[in-house]
Amino acid sequence: MRETFTRCLQEEARRNPNLVLITGDLGFGVLFPYMKEFPDRFINAGISEQAMMSMAAGMALEGKTVVVYSIGNFPTLRCLEQIRNCCAYHEANVKIVCVGAGFVYGTLGMTHHATEDMSALRLLPGVTVYAPADRVETEAVMARFLTEPGVAYLRIGRGGEPVLREPTDVAGYKTGKAVPFADGTEAYILTAGGILASAVGARRLLAERGHSVGVVSFPTVKPIDEALIRELCARVPVIFTLEEHTIVGGFGGAVCETVCGFPENRARVVRLGMNDMYSSIVGSQAYLEAYYGLDDAGVADRVQAVLEGRA
């Protein structure tokens, strides 16, 4: 995803002479091709996320499209009030990129686990939140992320994620649209971000166990695809949300807030993710996903338990 991000960024920088990239002293290697091609439109603000985010807003108010790059919780929680006051309230063209969604930096410890960022960003009025699942979805949302006015947040993994989508799945992608992966008759698993892979794996396991479960990816978390959620709620009795993130106020929270507004709804929503907790143990992304029941088998077991009336 990182490489796709850099490539799309360079393509847009060729089109838009006002595009500027600011990094908080991270992205060594990843940003190098951009730095080389656009040295005059690259700023390393050092390790100073608060000043960096306000500065980005100031530059945007002067006509720049400012892409701010960092990892983990640094471009989000560390400078949340700057995003609120300086960027969002001023409707500034600031595009915030977080590399390292969820447990991408699992071994680095709790400070580097990005598990509350979607909740934090989506609560700010005027901020669009993107969480693409793979490089195909990343490419699709990049075009919207960099060109639509206002503040936007892009949450991506590191690289090496499985490619699950075909370019035709996301052709002409529009902000706010969910992208179905496969249909099912008993339930749907809705996902945001790279964790789509676990939903796809769980779907296969569940099929082997005799259950038909659909999967839908939400490359845009805010604004959320309300129409599709409504349609799914009418189709199946239970909707699962899956995120490598806290279940409080994030993607699952967004789905719940949406569903509770449907007067006709009878579907249950079950949120899968981090249960309002930090991880004090470390490990690879795959290890921590399995540990917290967010891998193929863990998701399949929990979905099966619900479908069979055991949870």
Binding site: Q50, A57, E62, C86, H90
Partner: peptide
Amino acid sequence: VSTGSLGQGMPMAMGMAM
């Protein structure tokens, strides 16, 4: 620009200068 939360106007102004 709007301010009121201290320490934010100066970096915004710096961005404008940049």
